[in-house]
């Protein structure tokens, strides 16, 4: 039995993901997600031992091959203005964003 992503669940995800979608986009994305879920369902049928480890990387990083971490030091950035110039809105070297609307916590 394959799970199905309901419209309510989908709308919740869209809200969490901070995405504004057109109705046509929403319909396409929900359909594709449910199609992908059918493929993912194959995983559920695989017999797994309790002690099968999870793998966050394929290559096992041994102590010898793991690079030393850089020292956590403050370094001057040589091109601050170049980076600030990328921001959509800046005022006196502060990045400006629209107002944060007030919301009453439930």
């Amino acid at each position: 039995m394959t799970d199905t992503i309901s419209r309510a669940m989908f709308d919740h995800l869209v809200d969490l993901a901070a995405l504004e979608l057109t109705p046509a986009e929403a319909e396409y994305l929900l359909q594709q997600m449910n199609n992908q879920l059918k493929s993912i369902a194959e995983l559920v049928a695989i017999p797994l031992d309790e002690d099968t480890p999870i793998a966050s990387h394929g290559v096992p990083y041994t102590a010898e091959m793991s690079p030393q971490l850089r020292l956590d030091l403050v370094r001057p950035c040589p091109n601050v203005d170049e980076i600030l110039a990328q921001a959509p809105q800046v005022n006196e070297r502060y990045v400006i964003v629209p107002d944060i609307p007030h919301a009453t916590l439930e």
Partner: peptide, 30 residues
């Protein structure tokens, strides 16, 4: 969306990303 930060996030991401990034964001979150 000049006056609402949350709306700015949603619209910027909604207009800026194409369907494939949107699909990956939503599926990854699910």
């Amino acid at each position: 969306a000049q006056n609402d930060l949350r709306l700015m996030y949603r619209r910027s991401r909604g207009q800026g990303f194409g369907p494939q990034p949107k699909l990956r964001i939503l599926m990854g979150m699910y």
